[in-house]
């Protein structure tokens, strides 16, 4: 009895710090976010408003556009990261270590580079008055350069490219690490059976790296939904709200308009969207396993 208790106590001691810290800095704020989302405290008094903050979000074109943009980023960037992660990882994992390390380092540089610095560099490149775009336009004999950042479609595409380049290194790193761990016997068996490189991808690498795919999906969905710095520095949600995202509006509401109720409601919605997307992935995976009888 005493021995069992001591064993349990040891476990609790080990998980204790995490439970306390995550409770204080993650669970409690989430809980507070839910509570604040039904209050309005803009006017030096806190008033219970029920679902008014949510109604405000769903009746405003700007908030709806921000939800649409956030989902667009998730639906485009996250699949691209997974596809390219598997493709690049699968192409290099069985090459010479020096080559693998070089590719990984090149792809990982944007991950460790400061998002602020990257955004400023992008802005310098694309500035139609004093940037590189202007310089090349002048070299080519044009009077003016296009203001790409003032075009909603191009700005969205640009943001997707930036998000992709800033996250692909992390994804490739995870896939390569996972693929290096795959038994050589399975890869050899595929080759001996006459499997092409495509067969290796389809029947060995993709199924066996499914846990990494799930991890990538969860972490990148969350990362892309929370994108803020690059928008704040590059587009400020513009032009005309064209690149506004949920996280950007959340910040604007909380720290510029001091409307913490609506900001909290937006946070709750982001949480729900993440939860739904991730649950969908888990449901799809469990169905797949059942079909395969695993």
């Amino acid at each position: 009895m005493n021995k069992k208790f001591l064993e349990s106590l040891k476990a609790y001691v080990f998980i204790g710090p995490f439970v306390i810290l995550s409770g204080a800095f993650m669970i409690y704020p989430v809980f507070q976010g839910f509570i604040r989302s039904v209050y309005n405290s803009k006017w030096n008094r806190t008033v219970f408003v029920g679902l008014e903050n949510y109604k405000k979000i769903f009746s405003s074109d700007v908030y709806l556009l921000s939800i649409k943009n956030s989902l667009l980023f998730v639906l485009v960037v996250v699949p691209l990261l997974i596809v390219f992660g598997i493709w690049i990882g699968g192409s290099i994992f069985d090459k010479k270590p020096l080559y693998v390390s070089s590719v990984r380092a090149c792809l990982y540089i944007p991950v460790i580079a400061s998002m602020v610095v990257m955004s400023i560099i992008w802005r310098f490149i694309l500035d139609s008055q004093t940037g590189l775009v202007r310089y090349f336009a002048m070299v080519l004999g044009y009077d003016k350069a296009p203001n790409i950042l003032a075009d909603r479609t191009w700005t969205l595409v640009l943001l997707m490219i930036i998000l992709f380049t800033m996250n692909i290194g992390q994804t490739v790193l995870l896939y390569v690490a996972d693929m290096i761990g795959i038994s050589r016997d399975l890869i050899e068996a595929c080759r001996i059976d006459g499997g092409s490189r495509l067969d290796l991808f389809c029947y060995v690498l993709v199924p066996l790296t499914m846990p990494t795919t799930i991890l990538t999906f969860i972490t990148q969905t969350s990362a892309v939904l929370k994108v803020f710095v690059v928008i704040q520095l590059l587009t400020k949600g513009g032009p005309n709200y064209g690149t506004t995202t949920m996280m950007y509006l959340l910040y604007q509401d909380a720290f510029e308009n001091r409307d913490t109720g609506t900001a909290s409601a937006m946070g709750v919605l982001m949480f729900m969207i993440s939860l739904i997307l991730i649950s969908m992935r888990f449901v799809a995976m469990s169905r797949e396993r059942k079909e395969k009888g695993l």
């Binding site: 009077d143 950042l149 513009g238």
Partner: peptide, 19 residues
């Protein structure tokens, strides 16, 4: 007409004074 900067929509107030 090129009488002001071409990037009014994306120019910030903090960038005008340094220019």
């Amino acid at each position: 007409d090129g009488k002001v900067n071409s990037n009014v929509a994306t120019k910030d107030g903090t960038e005008v004074a340094p220019d």
